[in-house]
Amino acid sequence: MIYAYALAGVILAPFAGVFIAGLDRILTARFQARTGPPILQPLYDIAKLWAKEPMIAHRFQPLCVYVYLAAAMVSVGLFFAQSDLLLIFFVQAVGAVFLVMGAFLVPSPFSQAGANRELIQILTYEPLIIIVLAGIYLSTGSFEISAVYAMDKPLLMNLPLLFIVFGYALTIKLRKSPFDISASHHAHQELVRGVLTEYSGRQLALIEIAHLYETVLILGLCSLFWTTGVLGTVVLLAATYLAEIVVDNICARMSFKWMLKSVWTTGLALSAVNFAWLYARGKF
């Protein structure tokens, strides 16, 4: 049964991802008093990139891209199989590391600087996500997703501050301002497209697909904070994503040093307070 769930998740996730990404672009445009592209625009982009002339910058780059995609698919599959949260996170980290390694292969300054910045981004969000997952463990007594669904009260009630911490990680992972320092969606900036600069054509299409998977995974993790009713889940996801878009639109991109300092200090402080609160309520 869990294999069927996993398979269904892996097949359906990119379609959901296209829908979310399209909505994201339309909403962003509306926030800027524009009309924006059609909702299927991400699909058009990917299909177009897929059909472009193959052009590779380094012979091992396609390998890295395929591993990135495979890791994203496996982690989404594990999520829908209700597996271990920490394990899912580590599997998606494989993809992140391979994306960086692929960018390091080419001696282009933009790609290299982007790869280094991507590593700093990983450095910034990884501890936060591990701490959030540990918070979930303390509330449910298990790292398995199935334990979250067995709860009779939404996790958000126990972990309100950790949800904010998770929001930081979400913003970095979705490449939203102010944390879009390694590769933003908008390329006309100092790093060209940073870590993505040297990927082109089909490779870029694969990366976009992997990114769709990652978006679904991240929103899936987000949905764990409200598991007691479908309506609540949808409202929470919509509100979170809308907040992400608002933040993206009102923030300038910041330096990686600022990111590392501010996110670690606020993130750790918020989670410490949340843990203390859990402790005071005798949760562990």
Binding site: P37, A187, V192, S200
Partner: peptide, 17 residues
């Protein structure tokens, strides 16, 4: 608003059409 037609200023020849 040329993004209506899917036009993006991508700034990188390797990604551009």
């Amino acid at each position: 608003d040329v993004e209506r037609f899917g036009v993006l200023n991508i700034g990188n020849p390797k990604h551009a059409d």
